[in-house]
Every structure is written in structure tokens, then in C-alpha cells.
Design a protein around this nucleic acid. Structure first.
Length: 635
DNA sequence: CGAAAAGTTGGTTCT
DNA sequence: CAGAACCAACTTTTC
């Protein structure tokens, strides 16, 4: 056998610093090394991601490619426009590959994809080498040390982490890279299944991807938004390892900020600058190593002496929570992101529940939830649309939701507020609906952290003190009395008196006239200029309803894997307990119900299957990141 | 084992 | 206006 001819497959580790897998590739002393990125059809078509996250990905790829070229002018990031599942067998042969090296991925879809690729490599006689560097500790090792159970609390994670051992120290970036070999692509390209293209609505024109493997110019260049058919991004946040390292450098240069950071004391209303580090999207794309952050911060903390904050509030504490969610995901597996078949999450009969694969007749797989949901209550559906598009009539909620949609990022505590409001603290809508919206819009969207946090905030798992309920009025006021965040993101209210900025429906006519704003309608239909919607619900009333309903649900104590949850007999338990607020029960409302059907244009209707549910229920199609493997149902 | 304390980040009222 | 007491009461961890 000749000298190693190595493909380094970049995926969610778009960096050169502290990459154990890249180090492993270089340790082979390769004759040639191709740094490549493949277009995953799941990412392009099946995962709903707004243009802002795409922009961030392209930023990371462009920066990485430049950094590679700096180390070796003959090399760069070779972007191949075909799915890895079909591309690799052809590539192994055409390029004479001996080794394939990559960083292990974490979520269910990615693990299945990697398993398939490893099998294809084995058949082609290509050796596969993987390393792990996505979290502080290897999540599988954490699970093993936690008694083969998912980590459902930070204490469990900390104890398991101690048993696993010291967090690996960062590996320096390589000083040189081998030449790439030849890159013939004289084989038949294969287009992936584009149906459904969950991003179709966002595209300006049909995407031109997959027409040629090496891209429009045949040079394996990084793709553009134009090529993907997307309009320009709206986010001010930009990606790439160079920026990430600069930002990290600035953070640790401020020793006091770094060493005394206390998350609960950072303001969700701060935006220029924001109160937290905004390193999460860099961690998501792997343009910054979490271990590098950990050790750089720890160094500052060690040198700071008295007064430094400690986990879980401190900066490193935030990283521990991230690891906790990854190890929870690793321990629970495929059902982690859903209620159904998940023994670790409570069953609560929220409105707008997910359809199962059975419900929709689109097959079955390790993921039991189809990505679509049932409209059990027109009022709830309308509340959901108003929440999603930032027209609830509660200015702080709306400011946060609009900031999220425009910029792809909001402060963690802001996420708490809007999540609590949608679920247990207002609308009583299923956390999976909110999880899907975040999945679509967050530039730092991480399946494990997103689902975990939604479970936390809805008191479904990880957290249970449901009587602690965020107020859409009081919570924002505490941080931002003058309403600066509202004035920026809800410009209709920018001139309203401070006294009414959190509750504009209470403003007297003179105050509204002075601010040139009318309080009217539901925000979904009227022109937005000069008009701000009425509050969509009575918060205090709904808070009481939700809290009581949560109490009943906790007492009944069903979990996602209970037979009663699957066969629908849960309903009798709740009815016997005298509970009225639950899936299938219409929400009493003065005027909200009548217009609810109008909101339906936002989503495609999907044909219903035989799930034993009422035929009249409307069905909505949502994102399908968790929708891993669809095979036609046998029957 | 059982009781007590703790748990990343609530709200309101009173001092 | 900062801080404590209270609200009503969950699960996990510690002692």
C-alpha cells in the first residue's frame, strides 16, 4: 500500500484550531490531503433553516477556505455539491483515497448518515478515522459514567464529568497542510430527493445546487446564497473562525467580565452590545472549539483570585449546560427531541400537538413524530401565529420574536420568556411548536440544546417549578425600564411614553395620539405602520388557567412513553380530574376564534392519515430536522 | 432510610 | 430602591 491519500471531511467543525480529528488526519503524514465539504441534502432540503443560518454557514466556509490556502496556496476547502451518501463511493475510486477522517457528529440523523458513510468506506477499502471534539467531554462517556443514563441535571453532568476525567487541552492549529491530490469528477452526479423542500418558501428562485459537483465555475468554490436561491441575509451576526477567535480574545482580555460573569444577571434587553458572548453560533458551526473557550476562560478565572463566579452561573457553567444537553441527547437517542416514546419527558396535553408518522401516513422510523401538527383549537393556532410573527400585543414578547426572526439570535433569558409564554405560562401550546420555530430561525440552533431548553422552560423535563412563571410585562421592565429593546424592534411603539411601553393597551388616547399609534386588530392582517395589535389574551387569567392545568398534569404523571399517551386514553384521566384546559378543548374566547382560519395561509395543509383523531382537525406542516428516516409504511 | 436543603436566571408586597 | 418574606409547592441532591 502506498502513502496515505486522505480526505478530511469538514462538517460541523469548520475550524483549524483545536480539532482532534484534523490532527488525527495529519498524524497519518499524508501524501495528499483533500479538505472537503459535501452538500448534505438533508441540510439543504429537509431541514428548515432561515437565510441567516445559511449566511453564517457560508461565512464559516469562506473563512476556513482562506485559512487553508494560507497554510498551503495549492489547497482550500473543496465544496462538493452532492450528498455524501451517493458521492463517496465514486470519490473514493476517482481520487484513489486510502483514508477518510472526520469529527464524530451527535444528533440522530447525522449519526445514521455517518454510519452509512463508514459502511461505504469499508466496502471501498478506505479506512475511516474519527475523533470527537464537539463537547467538553465525549457525550457517550458521560452517559456511561452516569450509569448509562442521560444526564438530566447539571449535578449529574458534573459528577459524570469528574469520573471521565480532565477536559482535553486545546490542540494548536496546524502550521502547514499537505497538497491536495487531483480532483477529477468525471462521474455521473446524482441529485438527491428534493421533496419536500422545506426551504422552498424562503428561496427567491429555484436553487441551482447539484447541477455540477464542482460548482458553477468547476472550481469547488464555496456556494453562494444566490446559488442556493436565497435572498440576502438580514442578520448582523457574521461567522467564521477568524471572527470567532477575535471575539474570544476580546472577551478574555476583559478579565473582570470573564471571571465574574453571572448569567442570571445579564440582561435580555441589552442589544448594543448584547450582555452575553454570542459565541453560541460559533460553537454550533464548530468555528470555535468549546474546549478552547473553556480553557481560555478557566485560565482567566484561575488568575483572578477572589470574586470569580462559579458554575453553573459562570461562563464555564454555560458550557456545562451545553454538555448536559448533548449527553441527555446521547443517552435518550432518537426520541430526545419529542414527547412520544420519550420516557424522560412528561406528557402534558398541550394544544397544537405533533402528528405521529401513523397520523400522516408518511411512514415510520426511529423518529415517531412527523413534523406536522394538528390544529385542535383555532384560537391556539391563531395565538401561535401571532407569537411566531411578533404580533401578540405584548411588546416585550413581540420585540424578542422580531429580533429573533430578523437577526437569528436573542438572549437566553429572552428565550425563557417567550418559551414560557407560549407553553405553560400563557398559551398552553405544545413546546414542540416553539422548538420548531427556533429551529428555523436561530443561527445557533443546536438540536440538543434547543429541544432541551424547550423541555426545561415548559417544565416537561430538566425543570419542574412550574409555579415560577415569567410575566411578559414585569420581566422586561425589570431589565429595561424605558423599553429600549421594544423601541428598536417594535418601531410602531417607539415614541410611546415609558409608562405604557410594556402595556400599550392601558395607554390613554392622548398618549397614543402623541406616539402616533393605534392599538387595534390582531397584527396578522392590518398594515403595520402606525398600528399595534391588541393583546391576544388576558395574561393573569391565562397564567392561572395554565398553572392549574400543569398541577393536574403533574399529578396524573404520564410520560412520553406511556401506553395511555399513545392510545389516547390519557384523555379520560384528565377529564376525570375535572381539567378543562387540554388538547382538543376549545379555548374560551371573546373574539379570537372567528378569524383563526385566516392564519392558515402560512402553512401547507397536509393530507391526514388514520391516526384515530378527529377527521375535522386541520393539519399543519412544520420543519423536519427531527424527521430522520422516512420509509413507506409497510401496510 | 427519611428529612431537609437546593435547584442557573419569577412575581408581588412590604419594609 | 434594595432586600426580605411570601406565594404555593415541583424534583433532585445532600445529609
Amino acid at each position: 500500500m502506498g502513502k496515505p491519500r486522505v480526505i478530511y471531511w469538514f462538517r460541523t467543525d469548520l475550524r483549524l484550531h483545536d480539532s482532534p480529528a484534523l490532527q488525527a488526519a495529519l498524524d497519518l503524514s499524508p501524501d495528499v490531503l483533500w479538505p472537503i465539504f459535501t452538500w448534505d441534502p438533508h441540510y439543504v432540503y429537509k431541514a428548515k433553516g432561515g437565510v441567516n443560518r445559511w449566511q453564517y454557514l457560508l461565512d464559516c466556509q469562506n473563512d476556513l477556505s482562506k485559512s487553508i490556502t494560507k497554510l498551503n496556496p495549492k489547497s482550500k476547502l473543496f465544496v462538493l455539491r452532492e450528498g455524501p451518501q451517493t458521492l463517496f463511493p465514486k470519490l473514493f475510486k476517482a481520487w484513489g483515497v486510502t483514508h477518510l477522517v472526520f469529527e464524530r457528529d451527535t444528533d440522530t440523523y447525522a449519526k445514521q448518515r455517518d454510519q452509512l458513510v463508514a459502511e461505504l468506506a469499508r466496502k471501498a477499502g478506505v479506512e475511516v478515522i474519527t475523533r470527537y471534539g464537539r463537547t467538553l467531554w465525549d457525550s457517550d462517556e458521560i452517559v456511561a459514567k452516569n450509569g448509562n443514563k442521560p444526564t438530566m441535571s447539571i449535578v449529574q453532568l458534573q459528577h459524570a464529568g469528574q469520573k471521565v476525567g480532565q477536559i482535553p487541552k486545546p490542540i494548536p492549529a496546524p502550521k502547514s497542510l499537505p497538497d491536495p491530490g487531483g480532483t477529477p469528477v468525471d462521474f455521473e452526479p446524482e441529485e438527491p430527493d428534493r421533496d419536500p423542500d422545506l426551504n422552498a418558501d424562503f428561496r427567491k428562485h429555484k436553487d441551482k445546487t447539484y447541477s455540477t459537483i464542482a460548482g458553477p465555475k468547476g472550481d469547488f468554490a464555496v456556494e453562494t446564497l444566490e446559488e442556493l436561491g436565497f435572498p440576502p441575509a438580514t442578520t448582523p451576526h457574521r461567522g467564521g473562525e477568524t471572527i470567532a477567535l477575535t471575539v474570544l480574545g476580546e472577551i478574555i482580555a476583559n478579565k473582570k467580565y470573564t471571571a465574574t460573569f453571572q448569567k442570571p444577571k445579564t440582561s435580555p434587553a441589552a442589544f448594543e452590545p448584547q450582555a452575553t458572548t454570542l459565541l453560541s453560533p460559533h460553537m454550533h458551526f464548530g468555528s470555535l472549539s468549546v474546549r478552547l473557550i473553556y480553557w481560555k476562560v478557566q485560565e482567566v478565572v484561575d488568575g483572578y483570585g477572589k470574586g470569580a463566579s462559579t458554575p453553573p452561573e459562570s461562563l464555564t457553567g454555560q458550557l456545562l449546560f451545553r454538555d448536559m444537553y448533548f449527553a441527555a441527547q446521547a443517552g435518550i437517542g432518537a426520541p430526545f427531541g419529542q414527547t412520544l416514546n420519550n420516557a424522560y419527558v412528561r406528557f402534558i396535553p398541550w394544544h397544537l400537538p405533533s402528528n405521529t408518522m401513523e397520523d400522516t401516513d408518511i411512514g415510520e422510523g426511529p423518529i415517531a413524530v412527523s413534523g406536522s401538527y394538528r390544529v385542535d383549537s383555532p384560537v391556539a393556532e391563531k395565538w401561535f401565529q401571532r407569537w411566531k410573527y411578533g404580533v401578540t400585543g405584548f411588546p416585550f414578547v413581540d420585540a424578542l420574536m422580531r429580533q429573533l426572526r430578523q437577526e437569528g439570535w436573542i438572549h437566553h433569558l429572552g428565550r425563557h420568556l417567550v418559551a414560557c409564554f407560549l407553553t405553560r405560562g400563557g398559551c398552553y401550546i405544545h413546546w414542540e411548536r416553539g422548538c420548531e420555530v427556533f429551529e428555523e430561525w436561530l443561527i445557533d440552533h443546536e438540536p440538543a440544546c434547543n429541544a432541551g431548553n424547550w423541555q426545561w422552560l415548559s417544565c416537561t423535563a430538566f425543570f419542574s417549578q412550574f409555579f415560577r412563571c415569567y410575566s411578559p410585562i414585569a420581566f422586561g421592565k425589570k431589565w429595561d425600564k424605558s423599553g429600549a429593546l421594544i423601541r428598536k424592534y417594535v418601531p410602531e411603539l417607539k415614541d410611546l411614553d415609558e409608562k405604557y411601553i410594556y402595556e400599550p393597551w392601558k395607554a390613554p388616547p392622548q398618549a397614543l395620539a402623541a406616539a402616533k399609534v393605534k392599538i387595534h386588530g390582531d397584527g396578522l392582517h392590518e398594515p403595520r405602520e402606525g398600528v399595534y395589535p391588541e393583546p391576544m389574551l388576558d395574561f393573569n387569567e391565562r397564567r392561572t388557567v395554565c398553572l392549574n392545568a400543569m398541577k393536574v398534569a403533574y399529578k396524573i404523571g404520564l410520560h412520553g412513553n406511556d401506553e395511555k399517551v399513545k392510545d389516547g386514553s390519557w384523555k379520560k384521566l384528565f377529564e376525570d380530574a375535572g381539567e378543562k384546559e387540554m388538547e382538543g378543548a376549545e379555548i374560551p374566547s371573546d373574539d379570537n376564534g372567528s378569524e383563526a382560519d385566516d392564519a392558515e395561509h402560512e402553512n401547507h395543509k397536509r393530507k391526514r392519515g388514520t391516526g384515530g383523531r378527529r377527521k375535522s382537525d386541520a393539519v399543519k406542516q412544520g420543519p423536519m430536522d427531527r424527521h430522520v428516516k422516512k420509509t413507506k409504511a409497510a401496510a
